[in-house]
């Protein structure tokens, strides 16, 4: 099924028809924002547009298509494949991953029990973030994170939406399949937010390589332990580390002889050193490579690659810039 049609399945009839019109290129579509009784807003080619009643993209909000409460309910029914009950854990986290690996962020009335989110009901806002795999985006980074055919423990640092998960995904694929820098190794992925593999019914929708085992929707700390005990990975990959449990599991995995590659939100190494838990990881030299991304020349610009002594082995200001 074509990607456009696959995504169209989550929309109610009217929107589906508009969406299936060839008035825009699917590959340039980044986000679709739905809010009850508000205009549908689309991020397309790094710009924001409204969708007109006849399905055209426009910058003017007059004649913009408004999504009704009933349509939001229907959309939720389609997003959850008529099985809202099956997505309760995901809804608690605020998103559902749909076929194609696209992520639907949800907002509405949050029911809290103790300090934990029990459920989100009366969902009135959705943000459909489209997954675009960039095969080969890690090519230019591989020489910096592989030494003597061994992958270095690497931490990818970037602000949100700067391409860290996209880069991580491609590095996983390359390590798993093997490339000119290293032979293929077994990779264990703990995909807590279903962003790396974008699994749908347990099956990764993104290419993670032939030697990759994935635990989907699994807490990182638990997943790392499970993988080490059961799948004997040579490399463990996780996205967005930060909690105390994550750090403990990472320390454990490093003592087990596994290499590790992880991502974290941040703008620089100094920024991370302000966080005590991460500081500990840096000081103990758990990571021997730090890849820092920013958006200077667009999403996925590599700013620096640092070694374990925090010395730059790649510097955007000195070398020709790398864009993923």
């Amino acid at each position: 099924m074509e990607k456009r049609e696959q995504l169209a399945k989550i929309f109610p009839q009217t929107m589906r028809k508009m969406f299936l019109k060839d008035s825009f290129e699917f590959n340039k579509l980044q986000e679709i924002r739905l809010r009850t009784n508000k205009p549908v807003i689309i991020s397309y080619n790094n710009r924001e547009y409204y969708v007109s009643n006849n399905g055209k993209l426009q910058t003017d909000s007059t004649d913009a298509y408004l999504i009704s409460k009933r349509e939001m309910k229907e959309t939720m029914e389609f997003v959850s494949s008529y099985s809202l009950y099956a997505y309760e854990e995901e809804i608690k986290q605020g998103f559902i991953t749909i076929q194609g690996g696209h992520r639907v962020g949800l907002a509405g009335k949050v029911v809290v029990e103790g300090e934990k989110v029990k459920l989100i009901k009366y969902i009135s806002c959705m943000n459909i973030r489209l997954a675009h795999e960039v095969i080969g985006c890690g090519d230019k980074i591989m020489p910096y994170i592989v030494t003597n055919s061994e992958i270095e423990n690497t931490l990818i640092i970037s602000p949100p939406s700067a391409g860290k998960t996209t880069l991580l995904r491609d590095i996983i694929r390359q390590c798993s399949n093997g490339n000119s820098f290293l032979k293929g190794i077994s990779v264990g992925v703990v995909d807590e937010r279903s962003e790396i593999g974008a699994c749908y019914m347990g099956e990764p929708q993104n290419d993670l390589g032939i030697r990759t085992d994935i635990l989907d929707n699994c807490p990182k700390a638990v997943g790392i332990m499970m993988l080490i005990r059961t799948m004997s990975p040579k490399l463990i990959a996780v996205d967005e580390i930060g909690s105390k449990e994550d750090i403990e599991a990472i320390l454990y995995s490093c003592n087990c002889g596994c290499s590790l590659i992880a991502t974290i939100h941040g703008s620089s190494l100094e920024d991370l050193e302000k966080k005590p838990r991460i500081k500990e990881l840096i000081e103990r030299r758990i990571f021997s490579r730090f890849v820092i991304l920013d958006k200077t020349y667009g999403v996925g610009t590599v700013a620096y690659v640092l070694n374990e002594k925090k010395e730059p082995i790649y510097d955007r200001n000195k070398n020709s810039y790398i864009k993923l």
Partner: peptide, 11 residues
Amino acid sequence: ALGYLDYEMER
């Protein structure tokens, strides 16, 4: 009755 209920309600 089904299709749009959360886990507890569906059950």
